[in-house]
Design a protein around this nucleic acid. Structure first.
Lengths: 202, 202
DNA sequence: CGGTGCCGATGACATTTGTCACCGCCCACC
DNA sequence: GGTGGGCGGTGACAAATGTCATCGGCACCG
């Protein structure tokens, strides 16, 4: 029983490499390739692969969004994420949407096939280094609301703007941002944004 | 006369793919591979390749830094940069340090070999899309000093900190940042940092 | 030589932001 | 049935930041 695979990655070289390497394995067949999130979804619906190998960063929809949608429309399709320089927070979110494999692009070609088989068999695989990062990063100390507001602050927006977008009073926004900065040990909200980004909390 | 190539990329898959694809060409030989900036330099010194293919983002030293150093120690070695999601400013800086090829990782495998030959022969190649982005982004409106100060502000540092690091008066720092924000049409320095980043000006 | 523009600085002022205390509401949990 | 915590808000105060005018020095160019 050969395993039918969908490859989605906007970097042709990587996709080509994976396709070539997987073609060497008798029990693996790449049935579709995609270079963007929406294309990946369309391909998946058309070809109904057993395993979808998704890049985290893609035009249109990112890997996590594709995985979320795939789980809804093709629950039998296992998903795995490959990522270039993965920030820890993505791992947790990936697992939450049912992703069963999470690996960096530094993975050796030899390992990739084995991991695909593991995932197909219902197992899971998480790159040890990424897992360690995620554990080291730990849970976000921020409350949901604090996270929301901090996200709105992410691109240097002023308090007034944030308040307007969040439909909150400016004072409340300042309180949340102040609390977030304190929890994160940051000097101000901008540094807090950076720290939260590094930990994958926003 | 076969062309001797150094590959430097921290993503094994990409590096493996490029190595495999280039091996198919009779006139191309991959003589060394590296997974980090310093390693790339060491390999280059040891193997003296004709062409160095460098990833922009690598641990240790990034591709531009490696290219700069290579130009100094191995002036006969041509350099090219491959980049995942390249911001425009890098292209200009790359050309300034003598890089002769600049392409995204979405490049098709078939093109890669041809571009390497072009570069080896003294020609240049710049991905049309990246070139268009760079032209659209245009010149930075910032003075050199404004750029320096804005860079120091990049991670949310306070004015006092920046002043200390730049050995400037806090007032001067504020003036520069204010000027930079005005020129960039930003509400504050943090938004200015974001805009400058997007344009590759810092 | 005068004009222009970047550099570094100062001082003054308005605005924004950070910090703190305190309020009420609601909901979950013990 | 009390307690704690998140949520949303207000007010006040201090600190940081943004803005503007102005100065001297310097280099470059017409």
């Amino acid at each position: 029983m050969t395993i039918r695979i969908l490859l989605a990655d906007d970097e042709h070289l990587i996709r080509g490499a994976m396709a070539a390497l997987l073609a060497l394995e008798d029990d693996l067949t790449v049935v579709a390739e995609a270079a963007s999130g929406p294309e990946a979804l369309a391909m998946a619906k058309a070809h109904r692969p057993d395993v979808a190998v998704l890049d985290l960063q893609m035009p249109g929809l990112d890997g996590l969004e594709v995985a979320t949608e795939l789980r809804r429309v093709l629950p039998d399709c296992r998903t795995m994420i490959v990522t270039g320089h993965g920030r820890p927070g993505y791992l947790k979110r990936a697992l939450e949407v049912g992703v069963r494999g999470f690996l960096p692009k530094t993975v050796s070609a030899a390992d990739l096939a084995g991991i695909i088989r593991t995932v197909r068999g219902g197992g899971r695989y998480v790159d040890p280094e990424l897992a360690a990062d995620a554990i080291a990063a730990g849970e976000s100390p921020l409350t949901p609301r604090e996270t929301d507001v901090l996200e709105l602050a992410a691109d240097g927006t002023s308090i007034a703007e944030i308040a307007a977008r969040a439909a909150l009073s400016p004072g409340t926004v300042r309180n949340y941002l102040s609390a977030a900065a304190t929890k994160l040990g940051a000097e101000n909200r901008h540094a807090a944004v950076r720290i939260a980004r590094e930990h994958g909390w926003i």
